[in-house]
Design a protein around this nucleic acid. Structure first.
Lengths: 348, 348
DNA sequence: ACCAAAACCGTAAACGTTTACGGAAACCTA
DNA sequence: TAGGTTTCCGTAAACGTTTACGGTTTTGGT
């Protein structure tokens, strides 16, 4: 492993000049610059990151802190892959690398984060699995670590955030369902300490009102995530005096369980219960086909990366940083799971 | 952010002593050690990793290089989460951290790896998505980076490897199927440049022979991964002169498409075609229930971590390193998808 | 040909650690 | 108490890089 010293000796040149040549600094002639770059390529020189990090306090590495929920199950599963790709497509243009940090399920998230930022390994961080109240945000802010959150929180440190447009999803779903005559539309809510649930609930109430539907508290149903949750939910939706005729959800695993829960009850999705919510590639495998929303995760990743760059002092040269806070749009994949119109015929 | 210098000044002590106290080195009295540790905790001192890395060339960080296949889709999806957790449960005991490296889909894997090891950020690496011939292995070996592969390869640098027991899976599946009268057992093979496919194929041939079944080349079927592949496969299996009566697979997504492919043809899994292969939690959602094998991923992670430690000079004090090369066992989850006995009745 | 300015380059300090080395103090033994 | 041993601690060098500073050479204008 060759260092800048050897490279300099090899060219009979000082290490200062070599460094300047490599880093596109001025005060070095075009000729020697070429020479240096050539030799660097030939000898396979790569700057040692430790030395650089120590000297200028910057590592060119961004950390993406993945949330692991209480069951030790990564939130999102196959969700993040495209997001990463999108981020990297932007970051690599600026010489930045991206790594994923998996908090051990055995360790307290705050302790882990503390340790991580104290190490000073990462130039910036992305926080996911944002809680409604999230002390991690204030911790990062206090230590003035550049960061972006994937998700919104009541804890606000003025940081940029990106999020998926769950409001839009709920609003549009309710409109679709209302138009087809649904009056009893249920909402499957995620873990209560995630802000997501609150956002959805609020949109749900508001949107019901706008469609002249009455809000019924027991139709806003807290739901576990995971494979068995869907079956449970199926029971809770239809085995009651006033069954729901439709359900909206935000967990892409849920419909799998839901479908089978209905099947066990002898019911058919889209006929006995309208189903609509967030999906992935996998969702296309359901029959009857699931009406669901997909997000452009690659684009989301790109946007996160851009927001990150804005937070890093290094990239704010001249231009005043604008605070990126936005939700990314979704596209509807129409299926049969909410196709049926159940409006009572006016002429009997 | 406080450094060792400040810590030393605060105690009117030299930085050398402070460093020794913190690192459990001898040559420091019990009294001052306590003092130092106390002050460090009070002032929230955490050693700067850059300085340490530069001085002693070790970062306490392990990199897990995740494979991204040609479609830019992470191989494994929700597969790796438990593996990570298992690794961390071991690594954290030795003060090591784990990060996941996602190779950008736009970059050549070799170039990425080259860059990564040149940076000298990681004390050891884990390689996944191992190819039958894998130049990455020789690259790491040449640069004498401690590493472990998750998967076997023909390219052998004497490194430790861990793998799932696909041989066992295939062997046991064939036994089960043969016992129930199946004569035409198909095998869904993954991407040809993965070693996995060759291993499976070899076991398949061998195992057929041992069960007095004839090997029929057109039943060893190359299969894409992804959601549509299952549907295609369904066609190819049954719409032919001599349909297969059973199929074995190693891709946990496949059965979802397979089930629907069969449904479209008016056929029922377990009745018209026996299905058995690798599964995950999600697999339990299929109906009729899927007979599948699950691996203890947490344990696999632990084992990988142990193998890693063996490769790191730091942890080889005294004991001679043993080369860990093993497959982890699986457990069978019995379902209905291969339950039916199709042995022709001898008495009509 | 002379001087000022510009262009280029070398020297050395600095980043925060760890650790080899030597010295001072304390302890033990005779 | 003298000498030797142990225990403890401070000093300074080293890791590989960037960068401020000053010096030398070249350039360009008169």
């Amino acid at each position: 492993m060759i260092g800048i010293r050897e490279l300099a000796d090899h060219l009979n040149i000082s290490i200062g000049t070599v460094s300047r040549a490599l880093n596109n600094k001025p005060d070095v002639s075009a000729k020697t610059r070429e020479l240096v770059l050539g030799a660097a390529a030939d000898l396979g020189y790569v700057p040692n990151q430790a030395g650089r990090l120590l000297r200028q306090g910057t590592s060119n590495v961004i950390g993406f802190i993945l949330a692991t929920d209480s069951e030790g199950m990564m939130q999102g599963d196959l969700f993040f892959v495209r997001v990463f790709d999108g981020m990297q497509s932007v970051l690599s243009k600026h010489g930045l690398d991206l790594v994923a940090l998996l908090a051990p399920s055995s360790e307290d998230p705050m302790a882990y984060l503390q340790r991580t930022i104290a190490r000073q390994f990462y130039d910036a961080l992305v926080l996911s699995g944002i809680k409604r109240q999230d002390p991690r945000i204030t911790l990062l802010s206090k230590n003035s670590v550049p960061f972006v959150t994937l998700g919104r929180s009541l804890t606000d440190a003025g940081q940029p955030w990106l999020d998926l447009d769950f409001e839009g999803m709920v609003r549009q779903s309710i409109q679709r369902l209302a138009r087809k005559g649904h009056r009893r539309i249920a909402l499957a809510l995620p873990n209560d300490d995630l802000n997501l649930g609150h956002i959805m609930l609020e949109t749900y109430r508001d949107s019901l009102r706008k469609n002249n539907l009455t809000f019924c508290p027991d139709l806003a149903m807290p739901t576990l995530s995971g494979d068995t949750a869907g079956r449970d939910l199926a029971m809770r939706l239809v085995q009651r005096d006033d069954p729901a005729t439709a359900v909206i959800f935000s967990d892409h695993i849920l419909p799998f369980g839901l479908y089978h829960g209905l099947a066990d009850l002898g019911l058919t999705p889209g006929k006995d219960l309208a189903i609509i919510g967030i999906g992935t590639r996998l969702s296309s495998l359901l029959r009857p086909s699931l009406t669901h929303y997909r997000f452009n995760l690659f684009e989301l990743g790109q946007r996160i990366a851009e927001a990150l760059l804005e937070t890093m002092p290094r990239f704010q040269a001249g231009t005043v940083a604008k605070l990126i806070r936005e939700t990314v749009a979704f596209t509807l994949v129409e299926g049969d799971s909410d196709a049926q119109d159940i409006t009572p015929k006016s002429s009997t």
